[in-house]
């Protein structure tokens, strides 16, 4: 068990290293030298030298990488070219609203998927099951921003029930106000998440239901409910945990779309604006940290498997 943990940990470290190098080199080789952002500097050679020195840009590449990495780890992400403010501040302002939206969407989507997925797995090929299967394909095929637009047309303009833009009404910001702003973006995200999760929950449960030990458990006199809770679900947990961990990029993409359509003041919208403006410090920080988060989530999922499945805990 220790061996596998160490192995996966080393692999994750390697991936994180690769991610940071890739991000660093992309930024380093990206067209448009940072110097060009300050045209007046070019007039004075000594100023240029000083400017480079200050930012360690006169050092060899590996040294530059190391100092960049240590700054990134300490939370010193540099200045935004667009806002001319520290990137860390900009992110700190926007992170809570993204987390609020994404975590809520994740929890609702996963919960619905578990309930519905287990139900339709038990009723395989019933009409409910067929409907859920069609929905799960349709749900992942709908572009989030388009669904958002349709919702805005219907429920913000035609029947003005919810707000179409932002997170709070200026001057308000009470909980009910934020909730009613959240409704439409949440629907967009959950529509997609739920579809994505439900097909995996369904097939994870279905795969286990067809195994012999389920029949053997019934033969011991367990009721269907007991069989489901004690034997089927624990065995379906591994694929479901995998999907939950792997869905982090899906969630991120969903947040980008929903935030863009509904002008939700979060990281997703921020990254789109920053990319449009080629605000490299912001782009690279978000890339680095998102990728690192995904790598770490995958690692944690692997650790969780070891606790779920005794067969993986072999000594090597």
């Amino acid at each position: 068990m220790i061996f596998q943990l160490v192995r996966r940990f080393t692999q994750t470290l390697l991936v994180l290293f690769g991610v940071s190098v890739a991000t660093f080199l992309t930024m380093h080789w990206a067209p448009g030298h940072p110097l060009q952002a300050n045209p007046e500097l070019r007039l004075d050679p000594t100023a240029v030298e000083r400017w480079l020195q200050l930012r360690n840009l006169d050092q060899p590449l590996p040294a530059q990488y190391l100092s960049w990495l240590s700054r990134m780890l300490r939370g010193d992400f540099g200045q935004s070219l667009l806002y001319n403010r520290p990137v860390i501040e900009l992110i700190r302002e926007r992170l809570p609203s993204t987390l609020l939206l994404t975590v809520t969407a994740f929890l609702i989507g996963l919960f619905l998927a578990l309930v519905v997925g287990i139900y339709v797995a038990k009723k395989q090929n019933s009409w409910v099951d067929r409907m859920v299967q069609v929905y799960s394909l349709a749900g992942i095929s709908v572009p989030g921003y388009w669904l958002g637009i349709v919702l805005i047309i219907c429920f913000a303009y035609r029947f003005p029930l919810f707000s179409a833009v932002g997170m709070r009404t200026p001057g308000d910001g009470s909980l009910p106000d934020i909730l009613q702003h959240m409704v439409l973006p949440l629907i967009v995200m959950v529509f997609h998440n739920f579809a994505y999760y439900v097909r995996h929950v369904r097939s994870a449960v279905l795969n286990v239901l067809n195994l012999d030990f389920v029949r053997a458990a019934k033969a011991r006199g367990l009721t269907d409910k007991q069989v489901m809770l004690w034997h089927v679900l624990p065995n379906s947990a591994i694929p479901i945990v995998t999907i939950a961990a792997l869905s982090l990029p899906v969630l991120f993409t969903g947040a980008m779309m929903a935030e863009q359509v509904f002008a939700w003041p979060g990281i997703g919208r921020f990254i789109v604006t920053s990319t449009m403006a080629r605000d490299y410090p912001v782009i690279m920080t978000v890339n680095l940290y998102t990728a690192a988060l995904v790598a770490i989530a995958n690692f944690l999922a692997d650790v969780l498997y070891l606790f779920i499945d005794p067969r993986l805990r072999v000594k090597a």
Binding site: V19, L248, P249, F252, T253, I271
Partner: peptide, 8 residues
């Protein structure tokens, strides 16, 4: 794989 494709 760890970079969300849309972001990348």
């Amino acid at each position: 794989l760890v970079f969300p494709s849309m972001l990348l």
